[in-house]
Design a protein around this nucleic acid. Sequence first.
DNA 1: CAGTCTTGGCTAACGTCAGTAGCTTTTAGT
DNA 2: ACTAAAAGCTACTGACGTTAGCCAAGACTG
Lengths: 177, 177
Amino acid sequence: MVAAGAALADEVGFARLTMGLLAERVGVRTPSLYKHVGGQDDLNRRIAALALNEAADAVGDAVRGYAGRDALAAAARAFRAFVLAHPGRYAATIGQEPSGPEDPLATAGQRLLGAFTAVLRGYDIPDHEVNHALRLLRSLFHGFATLQAADGFQWSTDVDESFEWLIAFADRGLRTL
Amino acid sequence: MVAAGAALADEVGFARLTMGLLAERVGVRTPSLYKHVGGQDDLNRRIAALALNEAADAVGDAVRGYAGRDALAAAARAFRAFVLAHPGRYAATIGQEPSGPEDPLATAGQRLLGAFTAVLRGYDIPDHEVNHALRLLRSLFHGFATLQAADGFQWSTDVDESFEWLIAFADRGLRTL
DNA sequence: CAGTCTTGGCTAACGTCAGTAGCTTTTAGT
DNA sequence: ACTAAAAGCTACTGACGTTAGCCAAGACTG
């Protein structure tokens, strides 16, 4: 149900994800959906939680066995690949605030954060700067991925190249704190 | 009209900006709005263009008279301040693709980009890397601002401090290319 | 000054969509 | 075989975006 919604969001775009469309997709009349989800808000939040968990898995898997720059590059590429492959469900995460620490959305966010924290362990970062570095990485990758997904880079230069440049930039910065 | 819409979006949140609400705000019945804007899509795009132009102005003004690290810090702070002061209209810019080079949205985006380009002139950046650096800055600030506006994580540590740390990080990286 | 065109407002209506109420069917457990 | 939960359905409501068609006020022109 939520998986179908996420898939549909990836196909038609998150903004065009409608209860009626989802019902049609799963071969059911619209009101029947309400036996499975609380409503559109609930559906959106669950798609967002799914997306964050999947992103955390993707980043976590990609990082396994690597450290330092290799880990950073693997995490970055995995994250971007995920967002580009699943733009709809990732868009669902934008503008969702977890209602509390028990919210599945919050724990999913924590898992993703944890995956990036693992990357930072490969660098020599003072304790009190780890949170700052974490926010840096999240901002950087979230920003790049969403801008590209929205086609925010209208310029001609190759985007892949920019992304690799960006990874190198972050790596250099993290190595020289 | 568009200005009123932008103001309303800032107040109630972009997602809750409705034609009926805007009509009420400007003291008119809903259908009368269509004498001024083409519809909700058109309104959204115009609000987005307004926001990008205002952001470009804010960044451009803030940078004037500074260079290097001072310019970068001024630009970054101005941009973030703008997004936090006008979350609704800035949210309108997310996920809007300009229809062509003549689209006011595209030219507004170019102006904002130009403001950041001015900042980069204060650093010694090889020609072929300027575009990469530009995308870095845009991703970084867009990501940070939107994540904070959406309260995307549980920010336990002070956000202002993280932002200043992020500025310092970017400055160091740009100085040592 | 009279006529006309433009501008900006209005009411009435329609289509789409989220969501609710209440009933029926299917299915699973005893 | 019986019952109760799970999951489906039709019918309906209300909110919203949007269009059609009409009307009033002001500007421009003969």
